[in-house]
Structures are given as structure tokens and as C-alpha cells.
Amino acid sequence: MSEDPFLRLMCLGCGFSYDEALGLPEHGIAPGTRWKDIPEDWVCPDCGTPKHLFEMVVLGYAEGGAAAAVRA
């Protein structure tokens, strides 16, 4: 397990967020999956924006937000 902190990234097309800690289990990406390990041809599941147009953000979740993000 890498000791680097988990990253959070936001889709610049629609605001969908990817959190390395949470992954996207409903889209086949396990929790803990690093952004660099997601295929380059992956696109935003909500709007189709390509992976390279996500921006890393340093933002916390609003109360209850992380639980909601797991169900995204």
C-alpha cells in the first residue's frame, strides 16, 4: 500500500468527483484505486469528459458527503 495520501479529482465537464479512497465500485473501480492506474481512455461516467480533463482538488466533504459519494 502506498503511503501517498489519496487524491480527489473533479471532472471539469460536469463536476463529478473521483476519490481514490472510495473508488467507484458501481463502475467497477475498487476503493483505493489510484488515479494513475485508471486507463487513459476512461471517461467521466456522467458526462463523457476524458480523463485528462479532470483537475485535482484539495477539498473536504460536506457532512454526509463521503457516504453520498460512494453511491454516485
Binding site: 480527489r8 473533479m10 463536476g15 468527483s17 482538488v57 477539498l59 473536504g60 466533504y61 460536506a62 454526509g64 458527503g65 463521503a66 453520498a68 459519494a69
Partner: peptide, 11 residues
């Protein structure tokens, strides 16, 4: 205009 938010998953 679109702004980044102060927190993720606000109501």
C-alpha cells in the same frame, strides 16, 4: 460562470 465549491457534496 462556474466556480469550484468550498466542499464536495454540499446539499
Amino acid at each position: 460562470i462556474w466556480f469550484l465549491p468550498s466542499q464536495l457534496y454540499l446539499p
